[in-house]
Every structure is written in structure tokens, then in C-alpha cells.
Amino acid sequence: MLEPLIANNVVCHAVEAMVFASIACSILGVVISRMNLASIGFTMSHAAFAGASIGMFLEMNAQMAAIAFSVGVAALIGPISDKAKMAADATLGVLFALCMAVAIFLISYMQYLGKGLSASSLLFGDVISLYREEIYALAAVSLLTIIFVLLFYKEICAIMFNMKIAQASGMRVQVVYYILLFIIALSVALCLNIVGGLLIFVWLVTPASIASQFCFDVKSMFIAAPLVALLVSAFGVWAGFEYTLPIAPLVALLLTGTFGLAVMLSTKRKVTTRRH
């Protein structure tokens, strides 16, 4: 897609992957951070991690297994929270531990069997060895995320404002909540190869947190968060190739640095010194 602009194929794929991952994750991040569901990020990433381990163990396509397992976990979050009358965060904690246990168990067992699996690409990602199909899939999920927000904008706003008040006003909040979980699962599973299970959390939370330092309404947050993520990620990819640095951790560090700067410069924290 960006070949006319970037001559080097590897760099071009890396930039494309980062751009699409930034768009999908940061848009979802605006909803996640407002709903205090930050833990959904690491639960989903570890679900994808566990799914990929299962795929490798069964000698299947690891990414397809990651997607299937993440979607399965996403489908469990809502009903478990409802049935067990637990806060979504507590449910996420239980599922996170389950996913981590499955992944570690299988990786250790495969090493014991002599299959010699390295989990580092799943944990830290590998943005320079992506297939074209994987980038197309990421582009599709970014588009799906944008369409989801545009279609359900009023429902998303109401849920972000207050779930109980949205429900009391007669909205079908459960439907929108379950679609949201499904898209998060899909995005996280597809981003696993790029930034890895441990760093995906940064893309889900940090751009939205940066945007919230300056934006006073949701619409501008939905524009600012992906824009920030996109610019920082593209710069990170360039810097990573230019100075031969690991790309995903570099972008994570840059995003965190930007967040620190945003907190310092935030207009929301300024106290007026005017007397009148």
C-alpha cells in the first residue's frame, strides 16, 4: 500500500503494520480507558498468547489459533461477569491467569518434548517478518474498528458515560459491549505478531491517555488518539531501522515518553492565576 512512498519492502511492511495496529488499538483504547477496563488489554493479549501456544502445540496455524482463543475468551467475559455477579475487572483477572497458565504450561511442555519453541516472538513481536496477508488482515480490522465506532457511536458514548444510566434509558448496552469485546479480541490477536503479547497494552492504553490530557470531548479523542499513535509509531519504525534498534519496544518507550510530556503540558491541569 505504501510502496510508492517507501522503497524498502521490509520497512514498508513494518510501517504499514504499525499504522494499522495504531489505528485499531488506539481507537479501541479510547473506549477501554474510559470504561476502566484497562485490564481487558492484557487479558486479551495473553489469551492470544495462549491461543498461539495451543496452535503451535497442535501444529496448526498459530495466528488462527490465537484469534480463535481470544474470541472465545472475549465471549466468556460478559456472561461470566453477569453470571458470577463479579466486576468485569475481577473476571478479567481470573481469565488472565488462566490464559497465562495455559501458555506457560504448553511452552514448557513443548520444551520438555524437545520441540524447542521460542516464545520470544509471541511475547515481544517481530514487525520485520510479516506476511502481506497479515498486513491486509490488520487493515481489515482497522476498518472494522472505524465502522464499529461510526455505526454505534451514540451507544458507545452512552456506555462510556455510565453503563447503568445507559441501561436504564432503554439502550441495548449488552449487544454493543459484546461486539466491542469481539473486536478487541480480533485486534489484539492480529497485533500479537507485531508488538507482542506484553507490549500490546501500551497501544491500547497510552494513546488514549495522551489524547485525554488535551481533549474535552469524545469525538476529538477518537481522532487524536489514533493520530498520536500513528505518528509516534511511524517515527519509531524509522528510528528503529535508522539506528538498528528493536522496533516494538522503541515505539512503546516513545509512546510512554509522549504520555509523560502530555501530562506535563496538559491544559486540564492548569490552575488559573487570575483574580477576576
Binding site: F152, K154, M160, S169, V175, S212, F216, V218
Partner: peptide
């Protein structure tokens, strides 16, 4: 990130439907 006008408007959302 919502102002008064937006919150009041949300009162209509249930009637509107998905």
C-alpha cells in the same frame, strides 16, 4: 468527556434504538 448538552441528549438514545 461529555458536556451537559450531550448528556441530556443521551436521554433520547433508548427511544431511538440501535
Amino acid at each position: 468527556p461529555f458536556n451537559t448538552q450531550q448528556v441530556v441528549m443521551m436521554g433520547r438514545y433508548g427511544r431511538l434504538g440501535l
